[in-house]
Design a protein around this nucleic acid. Structure first.
Lengths: 152, 152
DNA sequence: TTACCTGCAAAGGGTTTGCACTTTG
DNA sequence: CAAAGTGCAAACCCTTTGCAGGTAA
């Protein structure tokens, strides 16, 4: 467990977490992969180097890494499915990671994006879905200068 | 079961589906709600008018309505969570509705969109997720001038 | 009349957790 | 050493499904 980037060591230390071989391995697998992996895929790859590692540890580690900001979970807020009646104007969503508030918005840029995509790749766009996550104005204000990353 | 918009009737008829009271109720609840509801929330509301309706029916109906394009499920592809190492360039996806091919792309417009959102609403953007669906170039060519609209 | 639907209850499948043992710092 | 982490297996929870009895068209 040497040859570990100090930055990484430090990230764990300052978060009061331990840098275990399992965690390093999982992080490594994610870094080496160029595509998004689900927990099971991570588990499979990790087991090639450490057959003992459990799926539970993979889940726990992914959650931890995500919390630490070392890993992104594109399907952020992997909450249950939500539905809305169609037919209304297309709109996009912003979800606050702190308070969970969902805001809808729209922008002409999205139309531009469709056009750009059509022209560049010759595709025919039927629909777009945009999900932005971050912190809403009031949570930003409330958190002020705190450097703590908040839990979702 | 009269006073039903003919358009709706027709939508079901042409899809070879039946317009049952349960389905109408569910659709109605979704239309009346201004926020996204998960299956359980839909179930709760629907039961206020028909205590007999089951959660299974709600799930089946939501799937059907989504398939018919009458309902949107923002969390498209409610697949399992996927993870990627943070720090890599953000990328977005285009999925072809015909052949299923997935293409990744990127555009500066997305950055602009974040900026726009930040300025307009004072939010702090952490990440964006864009999913575009449509038909890829080769499928468009192959399908030629067919006018059928496809389901999302 | 007959597909298609519904309710019920059980099964699925991804994710989380309790527990006893191990390991990091 | 004490606190954190791990493996295992059971528990969870949302969602799906098999079945037998309804029901729209």
């Amino acid at each position: 467990m040497r040859n570990v980037p100090n930055q990484l060591r430090e990230a764990f230390r300052s978060a009061g977490r331990r840098l275990t071989p399992q965690r390093m391995l999982i992080l490594q697998v994610l870094q080496e992969s160029d595509r998004h992996l689900d927990a099971e895929a991570v588990h499979d790859r990790v087991r090639q180097r450490d057959p003992e590692i459990s799926l539970a540890t993979v889940y726990r580690t992914l959650a931890l890494l995500k919390e630490m900001g070392l890993v992104n979970a594109p399907s952020l807020g992997a909450e249950r499915s939500r539905y809305e009646s169609a037919g209304s104007t297309p709109h996009y969503h912003f979800t606050c990671l702190n308070c969970g508030r969902v805001m809808e918005f729209d922008s002409p840029l999205i139309g531009q994006l469709s056009d750009e995509l059509s022209q560049a790749h010759g595709v025919s766009v039927v629909g777009t879905q945009l999900h932005v996550v971050g912190y809403c104005a009031s949570c930003v204000a409330q958190m002020g200068g705190e450097s703590e990353t908040s839990r979702q």
